[in-house]
């Protein structure tokens, strides 16, 4: 390669792959979850909606919505990290991501959620950390907060089965 790739081309490729990953999943749309990207760092955002409420008396976000949000953040982070390397090696972009097998999401083996405080009727944020990622198994920790990053309202740990990839490039 003679000329370094333009910043715009790099961004376009990364955002394109992320969008392909996220947009393909109906349940992510149903929960209105989006992902903010800063370099390789992802923050999952679940915009508050009336339908997420579990207990109208408090009101609080349903534990199931919180669990879904955390599990989604973990799954996308895992898939994203794996795609990242291929993207940087110039093997993956929005055009070939579908055929590559990178859109095949890991399968959850188990997922444990700690409910630390009730989820308020506000937007939720989450970041996942992959603590171990082998060829077959991965272990991921996720933290979720609302107004204040230091005051988590839920956290979770889960184990995942990584899908096999088709040969890329």
């Amino acid at each position: 390669m003679n000329k370094p790739e333009s910043l715009q081309a790099v961004k376009q490729r990364r955002d394109g792959v992320l969008a392909a990953l996220v947009d393909s999943i109906p349940y992510i749309k149903f929960l209105n979850i989006t992902f903010d990207r800063r370099g390789d760092e992802l923050t999952a955002v679940m915009q508050f909606e009336e339908k997420l409420i579990g207990n109208p008396a408090i009101p609080a976000i349903h534990g199931g919505a919180t669990a879904s949000f955390l599990e989604t953040a973990a799954l996308i982070e895992l898939a994203w990290q794996r795609a990242w390397t291929a993207m940087e090696d110039d093997k993956l972009d929005a055009d070939n991501v579908t055929a590559s097998g990178y859109l095949r999401l890991p399968k959850t083996i188990d997922f444990t959620v700690d409910y630390l405080r009730s989820g308020l009727p506000r937007d939720c944020y989450a970041r996942a950390r992959v603590n171990r990622s082998g060829r077959r198994y991965a272990s991921v920790h996720v933290e979720a907060w609302q107004d204040n990053r230091a005051r988590l309202f839920a956290q979770a740990t889960g184990h995942f089965l990584m899908p096999r990839l088709d040969t890329v490039g």
Binding site: P26, Y27, L31, S68, L105
Partner: peptide, 19 residues
């Protein structure tokens, strides 16, 4: 179809089962 987590197979998302 709205709660599907795997579009390839049409399997419901684990989060919905969890809920």
């Amino acid at each position: 179809p709205q709660i599907v987590g795997d579009p390839e197979t049409g399997v419901v998302h684990g989060g919905a089962v969890s809920a």
